[in-house]
Write a protein that binds this DNA or RNA. Structure first.
Lengths: 249, 249
DNA sequence: TCAAAAGTGTTTTGTCTACACCCATGC
DNA sequence: GCATGGGTGTAGACAAAACACTTTTGA
């Protein structure tokens, strides 16, 4: 049993070192319908898919989403979705907004609860399941044709990310375990869309005492190798209790 | 037609000059059922009310909430709810979180989308409708017995308010049209639960150039009368375009 | 004239900004 | 030895924090 009038959409952000991307999918209508037809309430729910843009127009891409099973907690199901899409657990995932205009889905009344996830693409395992025809990272300034209000959902997710990243140290989730300060700065420059001063940025980070020096350096780079740092959850939690003043802007 | 599996709950905050309060209601089961029975899908929806705590236990209070009609936009219906509760339009209203654990409502799967509203109790007109047995402001540190997860909903609304109020000039919505700087400061002290220095606070506010001097003073106070200020939406919007740097903490 | 709250300035401390050069490494 | 990005310090401007007394008003 699923809830016909509520779905979850999960905007998956990734950072490849240069730009912020979003992971989108194309569904395979036959496979989706086949899978759904195994459910007892198939007759009830199939109408939800009749007019689905991505079943009608093969050019249309989607944010990962699905209707919520009646027996799944919201956050739990968002995690399941994310696992289906990326094969990853332990991902930063955050609910950001519920979209509920009457006309957001033609012919059906469906609210959708938006989550965004931050993942590091290098951890990411392609899990192109049978229900998906395609799965691809898109640059945020060159998005393809999208289903329903998925464009708005992505836009709003990005706004939330932009806000959140300034006050909470969540940017780390987009980076590899070990990263250089330049990568870290580039990430912030990309998300906040502004250039920052290297010296000032580093001073700020240093003062927070949020990173640990891994005592390693980059390998195989044709220039001076940069130190690799790690973000440590323990340090973060300790600082949080002491009233962490994290702010980058 | 209503959506059986989704409701809205609207946490209404008010400030009386001394403390932050929340407006709660007690429902009148007979009147609610009578009103519902006029709807075509009554048989479908009455089960939603069978075990409602406030129908079973007369001591239980509620955040204002209702199931969403199929033909109402989410934000629009949140406004309707607020109007039903307070008789006010033009109220600051913000969606903050969707609560969706399986067990949040016993025997039914109901998600609820949380909104919070900021109102100035002096504008507030009691509209104790027939469906309500009682309607009352409660102090946040002495809440009564509440339905379902309404305690958590209020707590989370308060967290969001606390965050929001620091970066956006929304505190004004809790004050009368004309207010003194002391009232303004007290409001922030109450919401953020910390004492602030009067001189520094006033300097900060003055620098923002967000308030206009109404050229009026308090009347009938047994001490030096304070100047009354106004918050002006126009100024706010102009400053916002210029990149308003509002921060109080 | 007293009580009660309004209103105001200065100093110190810390944070933010702007800015330019040397360092290490691979080719 | 050169190209490439890594890494560092200082001075000036600005904002935040700490702190105490005078003013106005009504009773």
């Amino acid at each position: 049993m699923i809830l016909k009038s509520v779905s979850i959409d999960c905007v998956i952000f990734g950072f490849d070192g240069n730009s912020l991307k979003v992971l989108l999918s194309k569904q395979n209508p036959e496979a989706v319908l086949k899978q759904l037809s195994e459910q007892e309430d198939f007759n009830d729910i199939k109408e939800l898919y009749d007019d689905h843009p991505s079943f009608v127009d093969p050019k249309v891409w989607n944010v990962f989403g699905a209707h919520i099973p009646a027996d799944k907690d919201l956050d739990e199901f968002a995690r399941d979705l994310l696992y289906m899409a990326t094969g990853m657990n332990d991902v930063f995932l955050k609910q950001f907004h519920c979209f509920g205009n009457v006309d957001r889905v033609p012919n059906n009344r469906v609210l959708t609860i938006g989550y965004y996830a931050l993942i590091n693409p290098s951890h990411y395992i392609i899990r192109k399941s049978i229900e998906l025809n395609d799965l691809k990272w898109f640059n945020l300034n060159s998005l393809p044709k999208l289903s329903f209000d998925h464009g708005q959902i992505i836009k709003k997710a990005l706004e939330h990310l932009r806000h959140e990243v300034r006050y909470q140290p969540i940017g780390f989730h987009l980076l590899p375990d070990k990263f250089t300060l330049t990568e870290f700065q580039t990430l912030y420059e990309v998300i906040l869309d502004k250039k920052m001063d290297t010296r000032n940025f580093r001073k700020k980070i240093a003062k927070m005492e949020l990173l640990i020096d891994s005592n390693q350096k980059q390998q195989n780079v044709s220039h001076r190798a940069a130190k690799l740092y790690q973000f440590d959850e323990h340090i973060y939690h300790r600082l949080k209790e002491e009233g962490l003043k994290f702010r980058i802007e």
